[in-house]
Simulated assay, not measured.
Amino acid sequence: MVDNRYATALVIGSVLSLLASVYLSVAVGTQHWYQYRSLPASNDASNASDLKSLKETFIDDVTEKSYSEALFRLNGTLGLWWRCILVPENTVWPQQPGVNMVTKCKAFTLPQQFETKFKHPGNFTGEQDVLRTYLWRCQFLFPLVSLGLVFLGALIGVCACLCRSITPTLFVGLLHLLAGMCSLATVCCFLAGIDLLHRASDWSAFRDHSMGWSLYLALISAPLQMMAAALFIWAARSHRKNYTRMTAYRVA
């Protein structure tokens, strides 16, 4: 039998866990982790040819230098799995007043998520950037690990309900604590990697950037998971102490 206080804590913790999972899933699947705002493109013919080439290489090419330059100069947005740019609907430069702008997106392939980064993007014979390489890989893996831990915790919770035992809730809380740390680590790795990319890039003149709403969703999911973990751990430990005292009283 579970006390009403502990049952309430379990219900609130489950709701927080569900919200955190939804927020993190939406954040991972969207491309608004980071956004760039560039100056309007000039109507110079040579510049138009350059921008059109950027758009074509952004869609077709896979090198970090090409898609980073396009992000900086074409109002790009960057996510964990997606990169997008804003281009004229009719794909014609120079731009004319009133031209509709559309978003063109390209997904990162699995090999791209694990590719080696370099101190100077695009220079494949140069020095490797080990830190940025592992930051990029971690920002891809950590949210998957976080969601996996929450799913495992949910399975354990269901089994605990079927067995009418609150003891496994302690392990559910620990899993949610680890999930929250992974979610927070995802945001930290992403921001650190972006900062290193900016320092290694030569396109600072075009860069006006800010964090996007997808990143904030991931950032919100971390404390929600930790709050759920605290409720689960408190309910499990408090119930265990109460049960031990009742047992000792009955024996006495």
Rank of each mutant, 00 (worst) to 15 (best):
Q113I: 02
L170D: 06
L178K: 07
L147M: 15
A229H: 04
H120L: 13
P111E: 04
L191W: 05
V62C: 02
A228W: 05
T57C: 11
C138T: 10
T77K: 12
R83C: 05
S53M: 14
M101C: 07
V87R: 00
M211S: 13
E127H: 06
T77R: 13
A252Q: 15
A229Y: 04
K119I: 10
R245W: 09
P223Q: 06
T63E: 09
L78S: 03
F190P: 03
I194L: 10
V130C: 08
C159V: 14
Q225F: 15
G29L: 07
R245V: 11
T63H: 09
G212D: 03
V187Y: 00
P168E: 04
I85N: 07
A160Q: 09
S17W: 04
L191M: 11
A192I: 00
Q112R: 08
C163F: 04
C182R: 00
G157N: 12
S66A: 15
P97E: 06
L215H: 01
A229F: 06
S221D: 04
F124P: 00
V28F: 10
L224D: 00
A154T: 12
G13S: 14
A45L: 14
Y36M: 07
E64I: 08
R73F: 03
I233P: 02
A179T: 11
W234I: 09
N4T: 14
L144T: 05
L74I: 05
A154C: 11
K117L: 10
L80I: 15
S204A: 14
L110T: 09
E56P: 01
V28K: 05
S46D: 14
L149Y: 06
F108K: 07
G148F: 14
H198C: 03
V62F: 10
C188P: 00
T91V: 06
V92F: 05
L131T: 11
H239V: 07
H198G: 06
F142G: 02
S214Y: 03
L131S: 09
Y36V: 10
V150N: 03
G193Y: 08
E64Q: 09
D44T: 08
L131D: 07
T169S: 09
